[in-house]
Nucleic acid binder design. Sequence first.
RNA 1: GUGGCCAUCGUUCAAUGGUUAGGACCGUGGUUUGUGGAGCCGCAGAUGAGGGUUCAAUUCCCUCUGGCCACCCCA
Length: 422
Amino acid sequence: MSGFQAPRGMRDLFGADAAAAAHVESAAYAAAEAAGYQRIVSPIAEESALFERGIGGSSDVVSKELYRLAPHSEESTPLSLRPEATAGILRAYIQHGMRSAPQPVRLVTVAPFFRHDRPQKGRYRQFTQFNVEAIGDAGPGIDIEVIELGASFLVGLGLRDVEVHFNSVGCATCRPAYAAALTAHFAPIEGELGEVDRIRLRENPLRLLDSKDPAAVRRSESAPSLPGHLCADCAAHAAAVRQGLAAIGVALVDAPRLVRGLDYYARSAWEYLLPGEQGQQGALGGGGRYDGLAELIGGSATPAIGFAIGIDRVVHALQDRGITIGEVASRLVVVCGIDEGSLAARIGLASTLRTAGISARADVSTRKIGKQLEGAARNTAVAVIIIEPDGRLSLRIMADGKQAEPADEASVLRAVAALLKR
RNA sequence: GUGGCCAUCGUUCAAUGGUUAGGACCGUGGUUUGUGGAGCCGCAGAUGAGGGUUCAAUUCCCUCUGGCCACCCCA
């Protein structure tokens, strides 16, 4: 016994879990590609500085949770495992001059990300995200498209009660005034706040709105409202997004305290939530408009919007609700044989079947035919082909146990094809 | 990162400060040598790791590792 186990917060997926994850991932790609989004596969690691500038060096994600790779030499540029997708994708957009492509550039990726966080169900150190980014359009039409895309993906999987919580966080024009008003509102009770909230008061007052500290919660109730402080442009944008989504049947839940911590976010911010779940379990994903990010990482000003949905959480939600996914009726044919001497022939015939588009595997054991049939049955095979000692083939249909008289390969192949067509 | 609960074959449950830690499922072999998921009979398989207390530790204590929950953060 080696005693090795998977690293903390990182999982082996196999059997039904792997099938479910694969199914959700395919559904994600299918949904986005059907909407004209192109796949992007970007590196699993980027320069650490990209995340430090793009996400914010003081954020938890960067300051505490980043997997920093040990440099190979002193001259090496420090790299980190990506904790999220947006910075890398936007870096690719800038690096490859995608601004000369038709705008917006619509991109999708389903890929693993890494954060050194304390694991919990639905929160892993290696997790898989469905990311959609639309870069180069200031909306509001693209906002409507992206928000709807994520919602209909979740509904399409069977999560019909998913809620879209929506807010506008303003822009560089109107948010500073609101932040100042918030600071003024909370300042009188600074002494009652916890340490975390006091730091927020100074550095990021918007975050006070979703604090769970009782003192902050109480004070939030009388706080000036974010929607009331939007500038005319932001208010018009938010109204257009709301109206557009309403027009196509996507219900929004107004979430005036839904905020984003970082300055480059602007206007639309939303989350996909499952009601009735505690804590982060119900938070399937979130999105936002990050108009200020491209400039931060060295590009020209570029409006952009996107969302991230946690594949792991979607799978958990589906499993918790008993929604079966990724289960496909078996189409497998197993090739067995009476003699040991037929081993190579079994494998060859299985290959021939696969070439003909039929899922097939050989029984490569030297077990007796009874055991081979048992194995095929437990594998939920639809049919078994038995290689007789004389080289002829018997086709046995597992559902009813009917077995045809031995015949030659060509006619058995026809029979199998006909069987599977039904 | 903080706090709490937890850790026995692959899985799910037992038991115990002292001989071989038990069952079920799964796996595997047989069932007198060619027909399937059953039955019967076998076989294999565990006290997460490292320390400590003790004559003796799987059991008590500590640390580590891992899981779950809350906080935090977020997907």
